[in-house]
Design a protein around this nucleic acid. Structure first.
Lengths: 332, 332
DNA sequence: CGAGCAAATTAGAGCGCTCTAACAGTTCGG
DNA sequence: CCGAACTGTTAGAGCGCTCTAATTTGCTCG
């Protein structure tokens, strides 16, 4: 910076003003400085700037799983909102390990990021509260009372699926749940409540948002059907797309027509669901919006730190594709 | 830091030593400092440290597409290698825009990261050279002569597919290429050369690594077959998994048995290819290894800045799954 | 018991920037 | 024609840490 100042024949302070494009610099000097900077290949040092300014204009985003495209969409939303507000993003990855998650946040705090967004958090609420004292922090995908959170209304989502299936005439229905996964309990609750109101028959199998248990559940259903113990259900609602796809796979392998004979619905609307090859009916969470909202929350809290925690609840949407159709009347 | 020093009754310098866990501190003082730090909730300021140390122990990773799980695997490799070497990762995203990519790198340079890794770069070689002068930089997925690069041997990959199909007895083969996409030309070249040696018949359709053109190509093949103009090929090699899946989709829709009647092979071994639902035969690039190697390159260059650029070429591997099988003898 | 030496500790400068307050030049109303 | 009110520019302290060199402490040993 000194070199640039010398070369342009001005003071260091003026160079600083130019680099931050302050309006109170004469065009003449500005050009001289910019020229000198370009000639010397000068690039401001972000660390020094942060140190002096006591703010980084950066927010940290903790990603739990880089492989999950669900998060990618959310990050897109955060990114766009951040750019608009003149903030930059720092991504940290927790590689699906709880300890990593905390570590990532600690790293961010050492960097003195102005705020932190955690996607699909696993760490416990208490830790959230502790970290929340060091910097504004918001949770996306799980409700945390101590800090701001952005979630979709999983219960409403479950209800949407139920209505969709009931409208199609389904009465013998199976749910493969998401175990302890985020939002799984609410999805099930919303789904079950709606079915109960209509008097439809519901059977629940345990799952965990992964392929294995879903396949096991469907296999059992198929076995029961072939033994004549129980007819196949006319519809299956899996707690997320991954398990829905596993279920689909088992059904197709067994030669069961989908949706002619059994309808299948998932949750999340991942890019896999949209594959023309799969065409899974599912529930879409407004991921991009959730990202935008998450960033806005952080920003609001940066401006006014001692606001009461807010929980933003967004409405999920049904995306009816090719795996759900009118209930089969055939009995098997 | 001063507060911690006061509370522990030591000097600021000693606190600094403890925070960097230097061995030359007595246990007694160390404990006192750690206690004081914990009580005050002290967290070192990374910016100040970087400023004083003139290094950040951080490397920047430019991600072109957060949605592509291919990159996620590479990042996993980079991450593991980085953690092992005591480095931390900063992720930047280019959101598929060339300008963003350059911007991301600039940001990193302002942070004074010790090195940069760019995944699937789009910026031109010249820019690479310029940036390479400011910090060690390595390109993963595209060969760039001016700097280090890590790529897979696309030509060998094409050759692998050819051998696989020839071994299975295929002689009437179609390739849907990847247009100007990275490595597409080499994949085609390797494939075509091997087929030519064996005298098999090859027909090439234009593509661009996306679904559309692949579907168009297959539709045309189906039309020709039903018109009796030309029999269906017994095998199709699509330049990447996405287009392979699109091809599969058209074939299945048309009721063509895969692989009984037509075999399909992709390239990249994305997570979609591994879906039990799809089981696509494909070529696997050692993504995780590529990440590790990429980091190692950066590290080597940090240690010895003026090394000659090195191009690491890794061997691709055939992953034979359910979409490729013995050539059909049936003529249609 | 004090010289000699290693280990433990500290003072203080410096990293590259921003920010406050002060300082020159202009302009302008009275 | 003088002081007020700007505008543009600058000196210099300070951000929180590390690092070098110097100093103190604690031992060992003749």
């Amino acid at each position: 910076m000194d070199d640039v100042a010398d070369r342009a024949g001005v003071s260091r302070a003026l160079v600083s003003l130019v680099m931050r494009n302050s309006p109170k610099v004469s065009d003449q000097r500005r050009d001289a400085v910019l020229l000198a900077a370009a000639e010397l290949g000068y690039r401001p040092n972000a660390s020094a700037r942060s140190l002096a300014q006591q703010q980084t204009k950066t927010i940290g985003v903790v990603l739990n799983d880089l492989h999950n495209t669900f998060f990618a969409d959310v990050v897109d939303g955060i990114h766009d909102a951040a750019v608009e507000a003149g903030y930059r993003l720092l991504l940290g990855t927790a590689w699906r390990q709880d300890a990593d998650e905390q570590w990532a946040v600690e790293q961010f705090l050492e960097y003195r990021v102005d705020g932190v967004v955690v996607l699909g958090p696993r760490m416990d609420d208490e830790l959230f509260e502790t970290m929340g004292r060091a910097a504004p922090i918001v949770s996306i995908g799980r409700r945390v009372d101590a800090v701001d959170s952005v979630v979709n209304d999983d219960k409403a989502g479950g209800d949407l699926v139920a209505s969709h299936l009931l409208d199609l005439g389904h009465r013998r229905i199976v749910h493969i749940d998401g175990g302890t996964g985020g939002g799984a309990k609410q999805r099930k609750a919303g789904f079950a409540a709606a079915l109960e109101r209509s008097g439809a028959e519901l059977r629940v199998f345990p799952g965990d948002y992964s392929e294995g248990p879903a396949a096991v559940a469907v296999d059992q259903l198929l076995r029961e059907a072939s033994n004549g113990l129980a007819p196949l259900p006319t519809a299956i609602f899996a707690a997320n797309d991954l398990s829905a796809i596993a279920a689909l796979d088992r059904l197709k392998t067994a030669g069961v027509d989908v949706p002619g004979h059994v309808s299948v619905v998932g949750y999340d609307d991942t890019s896999m669901a949209a594959l023309s090859y799969i065409q899974l009916s599912t529930i879409n969470q407004p991921r991009y919006e959730m990202g935008k909202l998450g960033f806005a929350s952080v920003l609001a809290r940066i401006a006014t730190p001692k606001l009461e925690p807010v929980a933003h609840v967004l409405e999920p949407q049904l995306v009816a594709r090719g795996t759900s159709g009118p209930a089969s009347t055939q009995l098997d």
